[in-house]
Design a protein around this nucleic acid. Structure first.
Lengths: 269, 269
DNA sequence: TCAAAAGTGTTTCCAATACACCCATGG
DNA sequence: CCATGGGTGTATTGGAAACACTTTTGA
């Protein structure tokens, strides 16, 4: 039996607006260079050029405000559906962004999520939304590079400090010099990319970036694109072999030996 | 340059109250059985018997509402400080709980956190707050057992399904039969315990449950208590040796060979 | 014919595991 | 003395990494 306190009025208390922002990643194939070579892949994130203030014309993540009939995760999935047409995919919580002043409209906290979708499943209807290739560039000055098909290239400088005392990743995003990403979405993007990179213990996330039938080389390319480093084929195959199932189908006609097509399977041996 | 949209009024939109709830764990030593034996340890969680409606007299996690001058994490740390006097400890996000009807007072979402504190650092002033030993009990019917020093024993039934399709843990908490835990705090407690168990890749979390000087057997006992299984000493020592530093101090007078005292160190070799 | 990818086998190395053994204490 | 915990060494195992090798295709 649950009762309410007497004279309780929820409106007596100050309340924030609650929004979600979602970093949606996909894998795109670049055009083949020669008839022999496989097409390379690139990792891309969905960004929307804002048409409204605040941050008009800045790049932002898809998102929106939650409503009382939904859980926050349901809001994130609904927004994902509205922007991409993709349904029924898992979506992971990143962190809650709630620093004072993060949104000039007032007290608005944002729940940051990330997810992966197969590009062919997505229908991007919103005119201002498009895929931006994304990669970390390490060097004297590390940065995150976002590049559009139309040739725009944006750089987000960042520092990642591994503070063992805090037992989690301390990330500093520097966008003050060249502001082009709305709100604190640069940090959400960077954190999502770190999470994505750390998510490949099993190939399940990678399966979500590929069609139902795929070659093991395609799966390996997904890994190599996300991790940004080459892997040895023999070892990679041993690693994922227990998660995939061979089919009778063959992918041929590519200027070299045809390859067997595989499907994801849920029964790890 | 950031502008606001014209005629924008944040009060035009429906907003939830936002709260935090924190699962605070500690390790307690049970009394020694004989002069020879070491004292056993138990894992405990801090619970508060509510004095107010709703859920008056039910057990609940420490927590409270966020305010606009704090981040949500700062709210969680402030609430931790108010209930335990403990400051400057890391605190980890679990998940956001936001299902409709989770709080009878209205639209209230809760950000669930968890943390570890050393018992001797905590000063529990609130009269209705106390430590409850906690452990998973597996069997035909699995449940989570909470027991107080005064002899109260509460059981929370649960189902954990590993849904590979969702790539995360699906947890079903059943408290409908014997309701004694307020709100959805049973789920937060269970999820926090799962996170805690999965957090022992490195001994850093375990260090937070021990005083600055500890024996390797104490560290191993912390592991064994959290994981609820025995570990082999030789292997455990090799595993943690690169994370600890020996001191000249010795713990003697325990009815057996004295043991060296160690400290946590941050420079993993 | 041959470059490129598909696919397999072998060796090495490291870390987790299991287990055996000795040491030191104090009641 | 001896139960109990403190502490170390060694053999085994399994998986990751590195590398060598063969097969198959289509322009």
């Amino acid at each position: 039996m649950v009762n309410l306190p007497e004279n309780y009025n929820i409106n007596d208390y100050d309340r924030p607006s609650v929004a979600v922002d979602i970093a949606v990643f996909t894998i795109r194939k670049k055009p083949c260079e020669t008839y022999r070579h496989l097409s390379e892949m690139s990792l891309s994130v969905l960004l929307i050029k804002r048409k409204e203030e605040p941050y008009k014309n800045y790049l932002s993540l898809p998102g929106g405000f939650t409503i009382r009939t939904e859980t926050i995760e349901e809001t994130a999935k609904r927004k994902l559906y509205e922007k991409t047409g993709v349904k029924n995919v898992p979506i992971s919580l990143l962190y809650n962004s709630s620093a004072m002043g993060r949104d000039p409209r007032g007290w608005i906290i944002s729940c940051g999520y990330w997810t992966l979708i197969e590009k062919s499943q997505a229908v991007i209807t919103e005119e201002n939304a498009s895929w931006y290739d994304i990669k970390f560039v390490y060097g004297k000055e590390s940065f995150l590079e976002l590049s559009s098909e139309t040739g725009e290239v944006y750089k987000v400088k960042f520092n990642i400090g591994n503070d063992i005392e805090l037992y989690n990743e301390a990330l500093q995003i520097q966008t003050s010099e060249n502001d082009f990403i709305a709100f604190d979405h640069a940090e959400i993007i960077a954190r999502a990319l770190i999470q994505l990179r750390n998510s490949l213990d099993t190939p399940y996330p990678a399966f979500r970036l590929l069609p139902p039938l795929f070659t093991l080389t395609e799966l390996q390319q997904v890994y190599e694109t996300i991790l940004d480093k080459p892997l040895l084929m023999a070892n990679f195959r041993r690693k994922v072999m227990s998660y995939v199932e061979g089919t009778d189908e063959i992918k041929a006609g590519a200027g070299h030996r045809p390859s067997k097509l595989f499907t994801a399977c849920n029964h790890k041996l």
